[in-house]
Design a protein around this nucleic acid. Structure first.
Lengths: 330, 330
DNA sequence: AAGCCTTATACTTAATTTGAGTATAAATGG
DNA sequence: CCATTTATACTCAAATTAAGTATAAGGCTT
């Protein structure tokens, strides 16, 4: 059995969260995350194996690395054969500063930074509710619910959809990224699902159902890499609330607005500016440097830096600011 | 490569958190968690594999199951040979109600419920600071810090110890169970560490150093099973704060004090009674049944039940009550 | 039966935190 | 010099929290 190690390497380019992708070797193929097999004889730990692979493939030396989840489902990869070797993949989240980013090439096998919302357009609520939600996903999911004849199963599907997508009046939870992706996958609304079917089931209508919308439901990746990416996104959104991981993505000094935009970019929603600065100051997350930033269009802002001591002072230091997400468009 | 699936199955017996253990086959051996190898041809998913193994070994049908972490470190198992097969284990947390508990036997290979604080005596602060902390762990860790000649490394160790054990005046964080266990392991203060050494290093003093205290630092388990248990404990302590998982361990109806004792048992600290009940009522986590409990010594208390609807109402429903942990003894 | 122990539950109070503003300051580009 | 943009200080009411006090309702003891 081969264990594949795959990394969702996240960076932040101003207001856009980026993800490092490896270009497909052949045309028509989908991109992948940097990844490679775990080598029990060479790698001392799983994480070290991952770091080694990433270093080889991208020339990046990872700083912050966190294990996400281990997936072992059958038939998530269209090239998997019945009775063939079973893929087991361990997904990781890594954070790198934009300054460390280099050598993204255009050729096959080379790496490139992509916008993570291209793969999950329904997750970005910064400019109001994403259009794709009402235009494609809601009707698509509605169809998937109606599709089953069993009443209990229908109810179960409706419940899951309402919870994950907040259709039933509930509040949109920006951490439920994986739940939403899995539902879309099951409902056949993401590209991968059109291919990744149990081959023994092909012909039973799996592939046929509405090839059109799949193409629009975000950029697909190879194997289960978009699932790993969804896990990374959800985990990161949760983690910035109680660990100061956001600073892994920031330059050594930054203005409070830059910090706010960074949090907003990852969270996919807006924050209340005045309360945000009160919060980060009060929590002791940042301290003023005394220097001023080269004004970007208005009054110059003071530059701040991360206060490392905060981890000793409070048990769970993070940006606890409530993310505002609303249905009314901006 | 073989992937081992192992489950930390937690239950709650009144005020004692319990963990399901499998008795060692031979005398002198340590107990283990229920576990078994992942079978790529038989198991559709990793989690299904785990459920199957647990069903076979314990006749328990698991309800709530959650993946914790995948460990792939070398030489965590004393029986591991240099160049031998590499152990990779996926740890799971499962929660079962005490009512579902049965057939715990006394013979080898049979299961038995053990107190989880027997394996982590330093984690139970309900009756004040655990004695083992000042008596054994603090001096032991101090020795480990002093042991290295490199000043930077010494500083690094001190920082880690202070953070995890709150020696430097910080607050004890009841979620840092794994950090603490790993430190004790590295410092050679837990039983496992006396055995689990890189065999190539044996003779360099690893095993020799103070065999005495190891035996007292909590009940050891086979392989890296205590590490999985530590992960489970930390995860569960974190999770009850934002997911209503505590109800997976409660009877269908319960008094508010029973619920409070359950939370305290897992958290390892005390809660403020009046505020606790205000909290669970206000969060909408429970609803009164109208029935009264058979009084256990005082005024009869009303029985409550879990309000399932709460998951639709708020994004992260859980018992957010602050756990009080203090150095002064009760 | 009275008094005491135990547990339950209602209510109070002050301090703190939160959400949502308003007001004013300091830069730039016409 | 004025509109625009961004920064930052300050306000204010509502909600939440921490830590009580007060009272109720059982059983057990003497």
């Amino acid at each position: 059995m081969v264990i594949e190690l795959a990394a969702a390497i996240v960076s932040l380019d101003a207001e856009a969260p980026k993800i490092l992708l490896v270009r497909p070797g052949e045309a028509g193929q989908r991109p992948s995350l940097p990844c490679g097999p775990f080598d029990p004889s060479g790698h001392r730990t799983l994480e070290e194996g991952l770091r080694t692979w990433v270093r080889e493939q991208t020339e990046l030396h990872l700083g912050y690395v966190e294990q996400l989840y281990t997936f072992g489902d059958r038939f998530r990869d269209p090239t998997e054969r019945v009775g063939g070797p079973r893929p087991v993949s361990v997904g990781y989240l890594a954070l790198v500063r934009q300054t460390a980013v280099k050598n993204a090439g255009r050729g096959p096998g080379e790496t490139a930074w992509g916008d993570w919302y291209r793969h999950f357009p329904w997750e970005d609520w910064r400019e109001g509710a994403p259009a794709i939600l009402d235009a494609l996903l809601a009707p698509g999911l509605e169809g998937w619910i109606a599709e089953t004849a069993d009443k209990t199963e229908r109810q179960r599907r409706r419940e899951r959809v309402n919870l994950a997508f907040a259709f039933g009046g509930g509040a949109w939870d920006n951490e439920k990224v994986l739940d939403r992706y899995e539902l879309l996958y099951e409902a056949g609304l993401v590209f991968e699902a059109a291919f990744d079917r149990d081959p023994t089931e092909i012909g039973r209508g799996g592939v046929g159902r509405g090839a059109e919308p799949h193409l629009k439901s975000g950029g697909a990746l190879i194997k289960d890499h978009r699932r790993i990416l969804a896990t990374a996104m959800g985990r990161l959104r949760a983690k910035i609330k109680y660990r100061p991981v956001i600073f892994e993505l920031m330059a050594p000094t930054f203005t409070l607005l830059q910090l706010q935009r960074a949090v907003e970019a990852l969270s996919g929603g807006r924050l209340h500016k005045q309360n945000f600065r009160r919060l980060v100051a009060h929590e002791g997350l940042v301290e003023p440097t005394g220097q001023m930033s080269g004004a970007t269009g208005g009054r110059p802002a003071e530059l701040f830096r991360f206060r490392r001591e905060v981890v000793h002072e409070r048990p769970a230091p993070g940006v606890r600011a409530p993310v505002r997400v609303r249905r009314v468009s901006a």
